[in-house]
Write a protein that binds this DNA or RNA. Structure first.
Lengths: 200, 200
DNA sequence: GGGAAATATTTCCTATACGCTATTTTATTG
DNA sequence: CAATAAAATAGCGTATAGGAAATATTTCCC
């Protein structure tokens, strides 16, 4: 399959230079290896209509754009946005079980599940919360961003600033604003295991 | 690769819900303290046209949208983007095991682990990949953002566009750019269970 | 509340987007 | 290279977006 090409010279404001929607759409369709006929099936728009849009012979209505976005699985802001410079396209990092980068602290034992994290949107950990860790709990953790956690093993309590603490068992998950003070303590005799993801 | 058509209601897609462009535009115009007449002057579109667009009586062409964006000094991606306002400080959402919002498709069974997801940075799923789902695999999934996944149960293969497929077992995790085509298939006789997080 | 000014909506006409079918162009195969 | 298939484009009728002016609605005085 062909490489997804990314425009380089698009200005940041859409009004500065007139965003070549048709060209963009053609590139996307090509990168998906679709013919006009196939794209037509997926989007519900006629072959000829797609052709005209791509050749900038007509200016699609917003409903047409919606059908396009839905059918080709592209989201609309992305369609109009200037190309972002993120992680190089085609990158992936596999972490085999237990092979993450260790990161121990007194209460927790973090295992970083993805390297090269500077440019990423999320930072995934697998964290072992030591048994009976309540004594070590003195102050809230608090930082920018949002967190998601899923209990993999054991039982623990999540303390959060504006709420009562909540007990969690394997399978339970929590999503919260990391600016709100938070802390995890194990309730069980054995360690608890948690998947922990932080987004900036 | 075998034949199958693409699900349009996968829930990971950004544009499943209608997106009320007209309502949005009216809000913007009001917030700028502009009358239809003034907006008309700035955009070059007729009063009546603006009115119809705001009342969703017509679907503006892309050229009309460009004029609007130009005249009112808004950039187009922003116009279509969902409200990016971060979650109100101090918020949290607990999801007990098995109590997420179900979201079934032909190959996968998604359980959404956090409600009110539009404003969040991450969208967490727990996904059951049906046993022997290989036959259903037709085309890459591809969208804006980055994904992290952790295998909770079973064995499966992650196919990614620029690499060889990789086999994963419980405890293995993967971080990748979602613009790169990707697809998960189960290798085992039983279903596989995966934690899946998408960041925009 | 009545009247006038400001603002928004509706009407009607013209311009153009969209779909169907025909035609041209590009790719494939012997 | 010819013949054929596949894909993209063009032509034309119909549906709908866009603009000018008329009508309706709201706002603001007194």
């Amino acid at each position: 399959m062909p490489e997804l090409k990314i425009e380089s010279g698009s200005g940041m404001q859409a009004n500065v230079e007139p965003l070549q929607l048709g060209k963009r759409l053609r590139e996307i369709r090509k990168s998906l290896n679709l013919t006009l006929e196939e794209a037509s099936q997926k989007t519900g728009l006629a072959r000829s209509t797609l052709s005209k849009i791509e050749n900038e012979q007509i200016s699609p209505t917003f409903t047409a754009v919606q059908k396009l976005a839905n059918g080709l699985q592209i989201d609309i802001p992305q369609l109009f946005a200037k190309p972002r410079t993120t992680m190089a396209s085609g990158r992936r990092v596999l972490t085999k079980s237990g092979q993450g980068t260790p990161h121990p602290t007194s209460t927790y034992e973090h295992e970083l599940l993805s390297t090269d994290l500077a440019r990423k949107k999320m930072v995934p950990f697998k964290t072992r919360v030591r048994a009976r860790s309540f004594d070590d709990f003195d102050d809230w953790v608090r930082h920018e961003g949002e967190e998601f956690l899923l209990v993999l093993e054991g039982e623990l309590a999540l303390y959060t600033e504006f709420y009562e603490p909540v007990a969690m068992v394997a399978g339970d998950s929590m999503y919260y604003d990391a600016n709100m003070g938070h802390a995890l303590v194990s309730l069980s005799e054995t360690d608890a295991l948690v998947l922990w993801i932080v987004a900036r």
